[in-house]
């Protein structure tokens, strides 16, 4: 009977000592947090919008350039505020300075039914080559299109022939072949919608995109 009492007291003492000498509580580090800003478009394009989600709640950034939220991990985002341009420049100047120039698209047109470029479009090729040289090693995509004259599968082949013609012009003038990607959309992606079997000069084209 007495032994039981001693044991209990001993256990209590050990527990108390362990609690006193155990690891001390260290100050918890600040939780991660984000600053999210809806910035003006670099080429004055549309502003758009963004949603920021945290702890099951969400805030929407829209309408005002510089709309922003600071979100702390595990907490719902507060109401957005507008970050002044000077603050945006101070915090994000490093990344704003290195946004690459946007991709540029050229549309080249073809004579009816074949893979001969119109004289006007042929005269545009040097401009493409100049841009390629300025951009270092850009990706160049060359996509052929046709009007709806003839069968759909013939037009896929024709679109590819047109793309190949343009690719060969570019690589012939020194563009590195491994940077060029060619494809054909046949008659499926017209600029102007037409009924089937309709000739259309604007749809007989190759689109060259320099990224």
């Amino acid at each position: 009977m007495r032994r039981w009492w001693v044991r209990a007291a001993l256990l209590l003492a050990v527990t108390a000592i362990a609690a006193a000498c155990g690891p001390r509580r260290v100050a918890t580090p600040a939780p991660p947090r984000d600053l999210v800003v809806l910035a003006p478009h670099p080429e004055d394009g549309p502003l758009g919008s963004a949603s920021v989600e945290s702890a099951g709640a969400s805030a929407t950034l829209s309408e005002q350039p510089g709309a922003s939220v600071t979100v702390t991990a595990g907490q719902p985002p507060p109401a957005p505020t507008v970050l002044p341009p000077a603050e945006i420049a101070r915090i994000f100047g490093d990344v704003l300075a290195i946004i690459p120039p946007p991709a540029r698209r050229f549309v080249l047109y073809f004579e009816l039914g074949g893979d001969t470029l119109t004289a006007e479009s042929r005269a545009q090729v040097p401009e493409i080559l100049t841009l390629v040289r300025e951009r270092g090693r850009p990706d160049v995509s060359v996509v052929g299109h046709t009007d709806t004259t003839g069968a759909a599968d013939t037009n896929v082949a024709l679109g590819l022939r047109r793309a190949t013609t343009v690719r060969d012009l570019l690589t012939g003038a020194g563009l590195e072949a491994s940077l060029v990607e060619i494809a054909s959309h046949g008659e499926t992606n017209p600029i102007e919608r037409t009924p089937d079997n309709t000739g259309n000069a604007r749809n007989r084209r190759v689109e060259v995109t320099v990224r």
């Binding site: 800003v37 670099p42 394009g45 549309p46």
Partner: peptide, 11 residues
């Protein structure tokens, strides 16, 4: 901290 959904254009 968060998940950001973007409907265009510069974030």
């Amino acid at each position: 901290t968060s998940i950001i959904g973007v409907r265009g254009t510069h974030v």
